[in-house]
């Protein structure tokens, strides 16, 4: 067998091995038919409700814990209990200082790193049986109420698109980013 034949068969074997190693026996697909329709501004606006920790995406409006207490009593308390104590659904208060103990209790107050997440989640998913039914003012207010119950802001602290992302949560530095660990 000539040297080039050996080289060739080695190359062939290498190709076969590579093919087996990726299981992608068929050639990778690199081109689609390009049939996506332009998404309309209205279509995007309906869905685009995510709030980043920077506050990007927060809508106009405002509210404080006093107003939030009323929203909470009417729309949340039946599931989250008196003053966020929990039952039948998750407790929204408590657990501060327990994270390093064997009885760690994770709540909005003890665990969540960003107040923006509370606004985002309440607006997208709560009240569980009627999500997206609260006005922006109501979401700001009930967010303020839950933060106030946890002793994070005072009762008259008004939350809006500027003040909400500035709220420093007690466990803000409690997370280690593993997204690069694969």
């Amino acid at each position: 067998m000539s040297i080039s034949r050996i080289a060739l068969s080695t190359a062939f074997a290498a190709v076969m091995l590579a093919a087996c190693a990726t299981e992608r026996i068929e050639p990778p697909i690199s081109k689609g038919p390009g049939l996506g329709q332009p998404a309309t501004a209205a279509e995007i606006a309906l869905l685009d409700i995510g709030i980043a920790p920077s506050g990007a995406g927060l809508p106009p409006g405002s509210g404080d814990a006093r107003a939030g207490a009323k929203v909470y009593a009417a729309k949340c308390q039946s599931c989250h209990g008196d003053k966020g104590a929990g039952k039948p659904a998750d407790a929204l208060v408590g657990g501060t200082g327990t994270l390093a103990s064997s009885n760690a209790v994770r709540t909005v107050g003890s665990y969540w790193p960003y107040a923006t997440t509370l606004f985002d989640y309440t607006r997208r998913a709560m009240p569980l049986t009627a999500p997206r039914s609260l006005s922006n003012d109501e979401v700001y207010a009930v967010t303020a109420y839950v933060l106030h119950l946890n002793g994070i802001i005072s009762e008259d602290h008004t939350l809006n698109a500027q003040t909400l992302p500035a709220v420093k949560m007690p466990n803000r530095d409690g997370f280690v980013d593993y997204s690069k660990v694969r």
Binding site: L99, A100, A104, V108, Y111, T117, Y121, F175, V176, D177
Partner: peptide, 17 residues
């Protein structure tokens, strides 16, 4: 954040695992 994060004995949590 609230869920699907991995709390360690020291009270810190691994996020995006």
């Amino acid at each position: 954040t609230s869920k699907y994060t991995d709390l360690m004995p020291n009270g810190k949590a691994q996020q995006f695992t």
